[in-house]
């Protein structure tokens, strides 16, 4: 609990400092987050390698690891559909296209703007693309900040499912830290399957 609260506190403090303008935008190196992510990946990688469990971890790759990405896709689409019906404003297919991003904000927004521009005009399509960026950034941040809490309440697969595509890169260190090294191959496979499925799903729903 302490780790989750600390993570949330740090994230909110960062937003507050950024919005308030206490620190100039260029006070920190532009690629600081990238280098911190690399530093985190190196630490997690060395920990994994030095842990002596590599053979057991590699052995846990199986067809069963495909069940989790399928569950993530099904759960995300089902609940996004319900949210779309309640919220209104956009069509159900538009909401499904946005939700299908599964954390992959760059690709999903570009695909949505590209595919929707002819049907709804560039301006409206761009708004939907911006919504896709927002939704998928919030998903990634929620997975990063709430991962340890989700693992405790909903079990070891929950942080991976919440992370979506990012379970294979940005949120992978957090997943391994909060759920154990055994989740490493499952999170990796999960991210890879979703990375393939995102363009297919976004294209499918944006084309409806």
């Amino acid at each position: 609990m302490k780790d989750s609260l600390m993570a949330l506190g740090m994230f909110l403090m960062g937003i507050l400092v950024g919005v308030s303008g206490w620190l100039p935008v260029d006070a920190l190196p532009a690629d600081l987050t990238e280098w911190l992510l690399y530093a985190l990946v190196v630490q997690i990688g060395v920990e994994l390698g030095a842990g002596g469990n590599l053979r057991r971890i590699a052995g846990s790759f199986s067809l069963r690891t495909l069940v989790l990405p399928l569950a993530t896709i099904t759960g995300t689409l089902a609940f996004t559909a319900v949210a779309g019906m309640v919220l209104g404003g956009w069509s159900l297919a538009d909401y499904m296209a946005v939700g299908s991003g599964m954390g992959y904000y760059s690709l999903s927004s570009v695909l949505i703007i590209d595919m929707k521009s002819d049907a709804m005009g560039v301006s409206t399509a761009t708004q939907l693309g911006v919504l896709a960026v927002m939704v998928n950034i919030i998903r990634e941040m929620t997975a990063l900040v709430c991962g340890p809490w989700l693992a405790r309440v909903f079990g070891r697969y929950a942080p991976t499912a919440a992370a979506g595509v990012t379970s294979m890169d940005v949120t992978l260190p957090m997943i391994v830290r909060s759920t154990g090294q055994e989740m490493f191959p499952i999170a990796l496979m999960h991210g890879m399957v979703l990375e393939v499925s995102v363009p297919l799903l976004v294209t499918l729903f944006a084309g409806l």
């Binding site: 779309g84 998903r139 079990g155």
Partner: peptide
């Protein structure tokens, strides 16, 4: 809207993952 759609996606996937577990 973004929060609602994002949380719906997270909630749906987390509940599905809980079912898998």
């Amino acid at each position: 809207t973004a929060f609602a759609v994002a949380f719906a996606g997270v909630a749906g996937s987390v509940l599905a993952a809980w079912g898998v577990r």
